[in-house]
Computed example of a mutant assay.
Amino acid sequence: MISLTSRTNGDQIRIIVSGHAGAGPHGYDLVCAAVSALTQSLEINAEQAETFDKAGLSEIDMPFCITNLVLYKSYLRSMQVLADQYPGNVVIGDIAEEWE
């Protein structure tokens, strides 16, 4: 199961994605590939993002700005669609948004 959690405030956006979807054989798991593609796109396009990636774990820290906020909201919406379509493979965990 892939789990997504995030924390935001007026200064920083932090996203943690962990686990494996388990929806297919290693290298052929389309759910895992979709989550990876969305997460990598966010990492690549976010402004001044600091990232940490290893097998089964991605952490993204990015400063709060309009560009990053738009990317973040789009990412959350896309991940929610995946979680709705594949509830046994993707779960949206704690999303704490505090805007100062």
Results as ranks from 00 to 15, higher is better:
residue 32 C to D: 03
residue 67 T to G: 11
residue 74 S to H: 12
residue 22 G to C: 07
residue 26 H to R: 08
residue 29 D to W: 12
residue 28 Y to S: 00
residue 40 Q to P: 15
residue 24 G to Y: 03
residue 10 G to E: 03
residue 3 S to V: 14
residue 100 E to T: 11
residue 46 A to K: 06
residue 74 S to P: 13
residue 74 S to A: 07
residue 87 P to A: 02
residue 97 E to S: 00
residue 93 G to E: 09
residue 85 Q to Y: 14
residue 22 G to M: 07
residue 92 I to N: 00
residue 74 S to Q: 10
residue 43 E to D: 11
residue 97 E to F: 11
residue 9 N to G: 07
residue 48 Q to Y: 15
residue 75 Y to K: 00
residue 4 L to I: 03
residue 54 K to I: 15
residue 64 F to E: 10
residue 30 L to F: 15
residue 35 V to A: 05
residue 100 E to L: 12
residue 13 I to K: 00
residue 14 R to S: 12
residue 54 K to D: 15
residue 26 H to Y: 14
residue 20 H to E: 01
residue 58 S to Y: 14
residue 95 I to T: 01
residue 89 N to P: 14
residue 28 Y to M: 06
residue 96 A to S: 11
residue 54 K to P: 15
residue 1 M to L: 08
residue 21 A to K: 00
residue 70 V to D: 10
residue 16 I to P: 10
residue 8 T to Q: 04
residue 72 Y to A: 01
residue 51 T to I: 05
residue 29 D to Y: 09
residue 29 D to S: 00
residue 7 R to L: 13
residue 50 E to Y: 15
residue 86 Y to I: 03
residue 90 V to R: 00
residue 84 D to M: 09
residue 53 D to M: 14
residue 79 M to S: 00
residue 27 G to S: 06
residue 8 T to V: 09
residue 58 S to M: 07
residue 57 L to A: 02
residue 100 E to F: 10
residue 40 Q to I: 15
residue 69 L to C: 13
residue 92 I to M: 10
residue 100 E to M: 11
residue 12 Q to N: 12
residue 31 V to H: 07
residue 89 N to V: 04
residue 59 E to M: 12
residue 43 E to F: 15
residue 10 G to M: 08
residue 99 W to E: 06
residue 100 E to D: 06
residue 97 E to M: 04
residue 6 S to T: 02
residue 72 Y to V: 00
residue 17 V to L: 06
residue 3 S to G: 08
residue 51 T to Q: 08
residue 16 I to C: 08
residue 59 E to N: 10
residue 67 T to N: 12
residue 90 V to S: 01
residue 91 V to G: 03
residue 12 Q to S: 11
residue 53 D to Y: 15
residue 72 Y to E: 00
residue 12 Q to D: 11
residue 74 S to N: 05
residue 94 D to N: 07
residue 31 V to T: 01
residue 60 I to M: 03
residue 91 V to K: 02
residue 8 T to W: 07
residue 96 A to N: 10
residue 57 L to F: 09
residue 73 K to P: 10
residue 95 I to G: 01
residue 32 C to Y: 13
residue 41 S to Y: 15
residue 29 D to H: 09
residue 71 L to E: 02
residue 46 A to V: 13
residue 57 L to C: 13
residue 92 I to F: 04
residue 55 A to L: 13
residue 9 N to W: 09
residue 6 S to D: 11
residue 89 N to I: 05
residue 10 G to A: 02
residue 66 I to Y: 13
residue 95 I to V: 05
residue 94 D to S: 09
residue 6 S to K: 03
residue 49 A to Q: 04
residue 50 E to I: 15
residue 1 M to D: 04
residue 35 V to I: 12
residue 70 V to Q: 02
residue 12 Q to G: 06
residue 78 S to H: 09
residue 42 L to W: 15
residue 53 D to G: 15
residue 30 L to H: 11
residue 19 G to H: 02
residue 47 E to S: 13
residue 99 W to S: 06
residue 44 I to V: 14
residue 8 T to C: 12
residue 13 I to P: 05
residue 90 V to K: 03
residue 42 L to G: 00
residue 95 I to Q: 00
residue 51 T to D: 01
residue 4 L to Y: 04
residue 22 G to S: 12
residue 82 L to Q: 00
